[in-house]
Amino acid sequence: MKKRIISPIIQNIKIAHGTYKMTLFAPYIASNVTPGQFVHIKIPRDSSLLLRRPISVNGVDKNNGTIDLVYRVVGKGTSLLSKLKPNELDLDLLGPLGNGYKVEENIKSLWLVGGGCGVAPLKLAAQKWSNLDITAFLGFKNKSEAYQIDDFKNLCSQVFISTDDGSLGEKGFITHILIKHISELRPKLILGCGPISMLKILKQISERYDVPCQISLEERMGCGMGGCFVCSCAIGIKDSWDYKKVCTDGPVFDSREVIFDEWP
């Protein structure tokens, strides 16, 4: 069940260029969240910023009842969040919202493919399914924007890194590295999150090599409850699709169902 929670800030630190990690005390979310699900945060202090910000959960500590959120500063709301100090105030959040990734019991090996901000929710996936054989493919713009690589190395059997400029790991898009390995290793399931351009290629790769793939989508969001119909994404098959809601039908979808042609 989703709840409204008033959550004290435990920590709020910069972990990469323009990227922050906030730790919140939210035991209910920590115990109930599935990787890929998100919390919907009310921006404090400035009542002119009306809409909540949806941020996926990056990690949990069930013993201490805390959750980690990793977010990029992209506008006024996230800029305000980045300046909050521990115990300064409590955040108003709704969650856990949305449908997360689903990993069937018979799955023994898992590939995680993330780009930029999209790496964040995959860390919770690596944490939850750390008993599986996990290979992570993480792409960043450059070295200064990379984060949590050591965490992934601790949780995964293998970690591949790429950056657009080659300042860390291999140079190029992470999907290029993925394609080098997929024909020989044939994973059972791919979980992806990242920019639309990356997800489009990931969808093509998963279809060409016939590997099931779940991707997490992002769209400008309103209520988070499925009530306002604004966070739409085209789901279905060509010539027979509908706009589904990222907040309650997603954010995680089977990549085969996502019709990217309908994105402007």
């Binding site: 009542s47 002119s48 309103g222 306002c228 604004v230 966070c231 706009y243 402007p264």
Partner: peptide
């Protein structure tokens, strides 16, 4: 009705603009 393509919402000062286009 499918409604309009995304993006359908944007926050403006003390307001929001929406263009859902009657998806129902």
């Amino acid at each position: 009705r499918k409604g309009n393509p995304p993006s359908r919402i944007v926050e403006t000062p003390s307001g929001i603009l929406n263009s859902v286009g009657l998806q129902n």
